[in-house]
Design a protein around this nucleic acid. Sequence first.
DNA 1: TCGAATT
Length: 382
Amino acid sequence: MEWSKILVFCIFQQVIAAMETQLSNGPTCNNTAHGSATINNCSSPVDSGNTEDSKTNLIVNYLPQNMTQEELKSLFGSIGEIESCKLVRDKITGQSLGYGFVNYVDPKDAEKAINTLNGLRLQTKTIKEFVISSSYARPSSASIRDANLYVSGLPKTMTQKELEQLFSQYGRIITSRILVDQVTGVSRGVGFIRFDKRIEAEEAIKGLNGQKPPGATEPITVKFANNPSQKTNQAILSQLYHSPNRRYPAPLAQQAQRFRLDNLLNIAYGVKSRFPPMTIDGMTSLAGINIPGHAGTGWCIFVYNLAPDADESILWQMFGPFGAVTNVKVIRDFNTNKCKGFGFVTMTNYDEAAMAIASLNGYRLGDRVLQVSFKTNKTHKA
DNA sequence: TCGAATT
């Protein structure tokens, strides 16, 4: 068992090496990958009828975008002889949909593949992580389609097991997952549940959407999940059609430059600015712990009345000249990808944030008048 | 009109 994992890992690295070589020879994709093995912790296979295929045919999920059918075959062919192998691609774009089927000749090899390859971690250099999941493929049928749920607002402490316990009352769970922060490993409060049947998924939405899990303080959202690769395609398309270059708003540049000039004059000649510098320490001692917009990592600014097509770059351009900006975020509707009219900017220094707010609140961007202020904590009052 | 998140 452990032997075969090591063996598989070595073969896998060769596959990845081959992928990288291939990528360096062609301009089609800039996504390269390297792998590391992890312990299989996924749920047991589901029995799927009496057909011959049921014990040899595997579905493989969460493949890297750039993995080809040949590479899939190489990876799984390291276990044993493959009868057939299919990487599922988008009919129109030809993009990998991130899953495929591997049918072994020998059921023993299928079982071995599940034990050794399921849970294998693939990490691309673009931070995105893939964990291969392989299990017996169920017979194709309409009733098992669209049975995958996206769950958000989960308590950060909730485990995968607890998530399954919560949903298991509505049917048989095929796969489940909780997404975690790549760096800290803590739950992002988002996960997936795939049911055996669409009906079960529908019932789970009815029963759990907007409900608080036992012991939780906030309700969860349960809805049908989107296709994994759908977002990538959207992002690629929107990048193609979107010009990354935005003109800098001239009046802002002048304001920001004047602000910098004020500071320089102040530092160099002791000239008094209209906006005397203020430190965070000075503020905290005066205002106590409840400081608007102060999140510990900086000062969070709420920007309202952004246009539907506003993007992050406009926030960087508007706020950057006023000082250190550590983060910007445009809040979008997931499906339309259009800005919901507001966003957030985090700035390191109070005085720069205050200056940005003073300058940008009421600023006319296009045909809209922006409202800019420190972010308030509108959610649950203490 | 004061945070989304999609393996």
